[in-house]
């Protein structure tokens, strides 16, 4: 599948934003937020900014962004519509929390708002993952582990950001480091299992099935229907060489998982020094973008059976 940069930016930036929102919401709910309201306000602003930038980026790849309101209508059947609804609903508690902190009103409602915002963040990211996992045409994506990886990565990158900002603000908040540690470890293990599942799955469908000519013999394409690649070939036929994919997988393992995990452990011993966390955030940023690019580039679409793929 063609990796569209707007979609990569959207899923990684808003993923980290929702992860951040999730942890801020929970922290507020359990009274684990250090510092005054301005700390919370500043961090929530970052979370909402990441989410909003991501959502705006996602509309960039639409042919008609001005009609985007229509995308809220089909939540009964469409995960994309559900994602849109969840994203907007999540703005309500998150925005209220932001306003309460901005205005400084002493409201007893903030823990409830925190829980609601955290739940909304989780649901939205789950919907994002399900957009891909629901597609039966792409076997690499059509796996139960896919939305879980989306959740774990959002949680991990969000917790890393929170840990960095806490350290910058001069607070030693060890639980953020543990949250990042656990999420990223889980994400890393799930991602390894995802790659393993895909490497062992050559695909159930063949060119013979696609053409229905299998009972007559083996099928190979003779003439394409056109002289230059068409939309379907550009969109669904994008693929990355196996050698490059392996290099990029290693990049993901180092930048997104191994590196940040080591740096988190280091920063547990130097809790007021933001340096390690800053490097961890930077590395994870590169890692998660690479991960998302690969997620698309390694995905194979069944329609390519008509264009020369033997299996999919």
């Amino acid at each position: 599948m063609h990796p569209a940069y707007s979609v990569i930016l959207f899923t990684t930036a808003s993923g980290a934003g929702y992860g951040l929102l999730f942890w801020i919401g929970l922290a507020e709910a359990f009274g684990a937020m250090p510092g005054g309201r301005w700390i919370g306000f500043a961090m929530l602003t970052v979370a909402l900014a990441l989410i909003t930038v991501g959502l705006l980026a996602s509309t960039l790849h639409l042919g008609h962004p001005e009609r985007a309101l229509g995308a809220f209508s089909q939540w009964r059947s469409s995960w994309l519509s559900r994602e849109a609804v969840a994203a907007v609903v999540t703005y309500i508690p998150a925005g209220l929390l932001w306003l309460v902190w901005l205005a400084g009103v002493d409201s007893g409602a903030t823990p409830a708002l925190g829980v609601a915002a955290a739940a909304g963040a989780g649901v939205t990211v789950y919907c994002t993952g399900m957009i891909y996992a629901a597609l039966r045409t792409i076997r690499q994506w059509h796996r139960p582990v896919v939305p879980v990886i989306y959740l774990a990565l959002a949680s991990g990158t969000g917790a890393l950001l929170l840990g960095l900002m806490m350290a910058l603000a001069g607070f030693a908040v060890v639980w953020t480091l543990f949250a990042a540690l656990v999420s990223l470890t889980a994400a890393g293990l799930l991602k390894l299992s995802y790659w393993q599942q895909n490497d062992g799955d050559p695909g159930r469908y063949t060119a013979e099935m696609a053409t229905g000519l299998g009972h007559l013999g083996t099928v190979r394409p003779l003439d394409p229907p056109h002289s230059m690649p068409n939309f379907v070939m550009r969109e669904m036929g994008f693929s990355v060489a196996r050698k490059h994919a392996l290099t990029l997988r290693r990049t993901v393992l180092i930048c997104l998982f191994g590196g940040p995990l080591g740096l988190i452990v280091l920063s547990m011993f130097t809790p007021y020094d933001a340096g390690f966390m800053a490097i961890a955030v930077l590395a994870a940023g590169i890692g998660v973008i690479t991960e998302r690019w690969l997620f698309f580039a390694e995905a194979e679409h069944v329609s390519m059976l008509y264009y020369g793929a033997a299996r999919a």
Partner: peptide, 8 residues
């Protein structure tokens, strides 16, 4: 679109 395949 009109493809052509060879069946062997």
């Amino acid at each position: 679109r009109i493809h052509a395949y060879e069946v062997t």
